[in-house]
């Protein structure tokens, strides 16, 4: 038996990513469809106002601080309207897709009891973490693609001048901020053995960061706290759909998400698995 050749099989990471993608596909389609329907409805609602001047009059009726708080700066264009109505709020919802998916990757699998069977196979623990992260990142791309396609498609059907590149940049900019909270959920999933905690912690951080950014916009006293919010870096100058993607922030936020995943690998490699 001493001569028994033990080997590490190859291609397990690709198999894990494909497996996780297959499990996530249905929910990704639903998330993309729901967010896309909302974005399409906002495009349709903009058209119902008809005259851009009418929109300016509506804006003038609101306190500027309120408009600032919700990232509404210009409603005379459809991009400006979508920036305030869709892209300011979308991360709050979309971030919960990776939070739910990646909290299930470790702690959720322990609670369900599926992790023992999976790790009974010759799969390194780091691949379980990285495979889940990569698959969720790809599913997120699918969601923002569906969302963008439905939003832009509605504008094209309605013969509205919504820029294609602006649409792509608007939806693509949702990806890193959502993945950031997913990465945090993955880290919590590796640290805690309870999925509820792996959802609650990033959920609370999401809410706190959103409030810090929103309040920091309207109060000079609170502005300093915006620096600690990922929402500030998500839209540092304006919205990506109106001003384009800030690539430094885009890659910075993505880097933090990857860092969370790497910490998750380090934690999960050394800890016991409970089912």
């Amino acid at each position: 038996m001493g001569e028994l050749a033990l080997r590490k099989p190859s291609g397990t990471l690709v198999a894990l990513v494909a497996h996780t993608l297959r499990l996530q596909l249905k929910s990704a389609l639903i998330w993309g469809g729901v967010l896309g329907a909302y974005a399409a409805a906002m495009v349709a609602s903009y058209l119902s106002f008809g005259d851009p001047q009418q929109m300016e009059q509506i804006m003038a009726a609101y306190p500027p601080e309120l408009l600032e708080a919700f990232g509404i700066t210009d409603m005379s264009t459809i991009e400006g309207y979508l920036a305030g109505q869709v892209f300011n709020l979308a991360p709050l919802a979309l971030a919960f897709f990776p939070i739910l998916a990646l909290s299930a990757a470790i702690a959720g699998s322990e609670e369900r009891g599926t992790i023992d069977v999976l790790l009974g196979n010759p799969v390194p623990r780091w691949q379980l973490v990285v495979g889940s992260f990569v698959a969720t990142a790809v599913s997120l791309l699918l969601i923002v693609f569906i969302m963008g396609a439905m939003m832009y498609g509605t504008a094209v059907l309605a013969d509205t001048e919504l820029g294609f590149v602006a649409s792509v940049e608007g939806v693509l900019n949702l990806w890193p901020i959502s993945l950031f909270f997913g990465g945090l959920a993955l880290l919590c999933s590796a640290v805690f053995h309870r999925r509820a905690l792996a959802i609650a912690v990033p959920g609370l951080v999401l809410l706190a960061m959103y409030l810090a950014d929103t309040l920091g916009r309207v109060s000079e006293d609170l502005e300093v706290y915006r620096d600690f919010s990922v929402f500030y870096y998500y839209a540092p100058e304006g919205s990506a759909i109106t001003d384009g993607i800030d690539w430094a922030s885009f890659f910075g936020i993505t880097g933090l998400a990857i860092l969370f995943a790497l910490f998750a690998v380090l934690v999960f490699r050394r800890r016991d698995i409970y089912t």
Binding site: L23, G113, G120
Partner: peptide
């Protein structure tokens, strides 16, 4: 990992992916 490549394991308490 090398050991698990040569071992077939049935855990005591386990679950399998519901959808599959």
């Amino acid at each position: 990992v090398e050991i698990r490549s040569a071992v077939g394991n049935l855990p005591g308490e386990f679950a399998l992916e519901d959808k599959m």
